[in-house]
Design a binder for these strands. Sequence first.
DNA 1: CTAGGACCTGACGCCGACGTCAGGGTCAAG
DNA 2: CTTGACCCTGACGTCGGCGTCAGGTCCTAG
Lengths: 127, 127
Amino acid sequence: MRIGEVAQRSGVSVRALRYYEEQGLLHSERSPGGQRHYADAAVDRVRFIQNLYAAGLGSKAVLRILPCMDHGVLTDEMQDRLLAERARVQAQLEELTATRDKLDDVIRAGQAYRADPSAPARCAVAS
Amino acid sequence: MRIGEVAQRSGVSVRALRYYEEQGLLHSERSPGGQRHYADAAVDRVRFIQNLYAAGLGSKAVLRILPCMDHGVLTDEMQDRLLAERARVQAQLEELTATRDKLDDVIRAGQAYRADPSAPARCAVAS
DNA sequence: CTAGGACCTGACGCCGACGTCAGGGTCAAG
DNA sequence: CTTGACCCTGACGTCGGCGTCAGGTCCTAG
């Protein structure tokens, strides 16, 4: 499939796909005329890349992680990196959970205030 | 307390605090000489701002959310925004969880390979 | 009174992950 | 063979969240 279809299926822009290739994150075969052609698996790969970006990893970190998806092989160094990134993601998860809960607090406090404006007003900003 | 102490306690840079003020996220009283002075609550506020940033909200979104922390009052519009942002955070949480699990898959597959390199190698890249 | 550490206001720099524009080639259908 | 959709390679633009430097002020201790 060509780049436009990959873009559509994976939900990212054509420009982004070319950027990924530029960064060494995504490979393509070329037609005689120079156009990129991708295997079906590229779509999932792109989605995974997006996930890693969303998890706060930069393209360098992604570049360090992706090879083991290709080979299924894990050097000591790779394993360390993967574990380190896993830890980072886990930490992010916990922070995010706390933030969500805090948002819930604010929402609840506001609703309580709306129900009874004379009640104790301020919501806790406590950490 | 002055800006340096707030910075230290909240774990962000002095520059960042001035930036927050510039964006209308954080208020300070000024000494006669022009130096910023903060209430103790500023530290928690700053941490919360950081959390919201980490949750992927831009300063505009944060600016829309913070007022209700100050007043404890919730207009219809504010409530909608809060709920919307909560939903976004929740979605992020779920994506992140999936990403973490996928990382675990990769790690496990790699370890299995190391234990027995002749075993079925590739790990799943499936969405 | 003086030193030196903390603070002030601009204002420019940076970096990643693309957006966007220009100018031109490719390719399948009719 | 032509058309029109899709694709190509540069190369510059953007935007947020600060970092950093310059040149000057404040304030507290001794």
